[in-house]
Design a binder for these strands. Structure first.
Lengths: 316, 316
DNA sequence: CATATCGTTGAGCCTAGCTCAACGATCGCT
DNA sequence: AGCGATCGTTGAGCTAGGCTCAACGATATG
């Protein structure tokens, strides 16, 4: 009763363009009398005459013109908002995509987010997830996808995009026995205690983060657990711990008390992936995967993706 | 059918706050079943579930939350726009006030406009009106009021505010015989040709602009008509014409080829007024009159209003 | 397991949305 | 000046949608 009647407003807006009740009614799909009734009802509710009409000429009142001027943008705003939402609903799309990540988000990825926002009207919210629980937030529905290390062997989860594989380095503190070396052989890993993510990740994933043995079978110790990369780096810098990190991560470390050494004779790169629920077939994640492929140059993931700046501080 | 249903949106917005169909219905003033029907109708129209509900718990769907986030501001915008307009309509107020003026608008007046906008949500549009037709635009309804010289003797017109009366000066060009003088006696006016506004102003108004005779009865010539003050000043500067101007006007003249002389032995000040239609009893003009009175210091119009800067160039 | 709360559904009433036909006002034409 | 055409309005009347009520099913609490 006392609320805004969209129909009446529509009628007024069309009438303000047509200045003719017959055409207005035709455009809106009902009889001229209805247009007349709608408008007089609106005028009754507003309290003043909005349209001056004789049987020959229709014109807006001074107040009516100002009213139209005010109401039109507000109406169109609501209307398009509604239609846009309905459109998204029909496409099964969401306006906001919740993504999780480990450590840091690379520039190519934020570029893809920017494109996604521009081309698909999707905004991305980011939240860091515990290093040792890469999948639970996605599985529980708190996130739509996670940018985490592969592999994933879970029928409920699917990898939407595979990032270029990256060499793994060994991060050690400047006080560490290895700190003065230029590199380390993979068999030497058995002599140190590697930091290990803690969380509810499946065993195969944990084993991929910190191998239980060297290629020749010597056991690798990993007594200390960490929850985040920064936590790990703090331990590395402070004591005698060592930690495996991928090359882009090593490049992004800006502390002077940590060095990253290449590991020779080891061919097990780490690879990030965009992990989503298999059941979630929304188009935005597909779009994001496509944009990531685009950003990483061609749609075939390759090693060339993250070109490391020559002479950067990753090996010294 | 295919349009936005405000009722449904209202229901969703309230429900998103209450998360309870019973309370929602109570707040909106209908039965719980109606709330349920409205919401399912909205969901049918949008195409997806907006609210997840069991008989014990009501919560917004992910999409529903985003939808609410988008729609609420749009709805509130339309709603308040409508209510504001209705409020103005009931007060008989207009959002825009069309004013006319002669020559220039003084700072005190624009200050009053600023206050009017801030306190009464009324914007002012200004347009200059021909010097000789001060009333016709108002009488014809093209303007709401005019800031023009008094007097007005027309039952259809009313003076909403009287500005402080101002001394009149004689503007002459630097080549004029009087240019080297410090002042002029009123009887000397009979010796020159005064510029005269042309337009449809009533005779009594024209006579007040350019008196037909000096106080002692000697006729004053006024052969040349002008449409605007600037036109008059151009003629004054170029030739041997003279023109009567009020003190604030003289102060605002920035040309070096025109001088303004005080007229001794003459006590006929010019006075500006805010002239409106008597039939137009809208509150904004009353408000404007009040603000003008305020700006001009107290509500009793007095001569002290426009304090001329000492040593300003009005008399040389 | 009993009970209370709460959202949904379907039947039914009633208002409003809408159309149709008749009317009155205005303008152009002769 | 009179005629006809155009156009907005009004009131009668039909129908669909708005709304309520009562019954039902599901869920949490004791």
């Amino acid at each position: 009763m006392n609320q805004v009647h969209v129909q009446q407003i529509e009628c007024l807006l069309v009438l303000s363009e047509e200045l003719h009740f017959g055409r207005t009614a035709a455009r809106l799909g009902y009889s001229p009398s209805r247009a007349s009734q709608l408008l007089s009802a609106l005028e009754r509710r507003v309290g003043v005459r909005l349209v001056e009409r004789t049987s020959r000429r229709v014109s807006l009142t001074r107040f009516g013109a100002q009213f139209v001027e005010e109401v039109r943008p507000a109406y169109e705003n609501l209307s398009t908002t509604f239609l846009r939402a309905r459109d998204r609903a029909m496409r099964g799309a969401l306006r906001e995509l919740r993504l999780g990540f480990h450590g840091s988000v690379y520039e190519q990825v934020t570029e893809a987010f920017r494109l996604l926002r521009a081309e698909h009207e999707v905004t991305v919210t980011l939240s860091e997830i515990p290093l040792g629980s890469p999948f639970s937030a996605v599985l529980e529905g708190r996130l739509d996808a996670a940018l985490v290390e592969l592999p994933v062997h879970d029928p409920a989860l699917t990898v939407g995009f595979r990032f270029p594989p990256q060499e793994q380095l060994l991060a050690v503190g400047t006080a560490h026995p290895l700190a003065s070396r230029e590199g380390v052989r993979v068999e030497e890993l058995a002599e140190f205690d590697l930091l290990r993510p803690v969380g509810d990740a499946p065993d195969y994933w944990m084993a991929a983060r910190v191998p239980p043995t060297t290629p020749s079978g010597r056991p690798i110790r990993s007594g200390t657990g960490i929850n985040t990369v920064q936590e790990g780096l703090a331990l590395v810098a402070a004591g005698t711990h060592a930690m495996l990190v991928c090359r882009p991560m090593a490049q992004s470390i800006s502390r002077t008390d940590v060095r990253c050494l290449p590991i020779s004779e080891w061919e097990e790169p780490s690879q990030l992936g965009l992990v989503r629920r298999t059941a979630d077939t929304g188009p935005q994640l597909t779009a994001l995967a496509g944009l990531l492929a685009e950003v990483y140059g061609g749609d075939s993931p390759c090693y060339a993706g993250l070109s490391p700046a020559p002479g950067s501080r990753d090996i010294a």
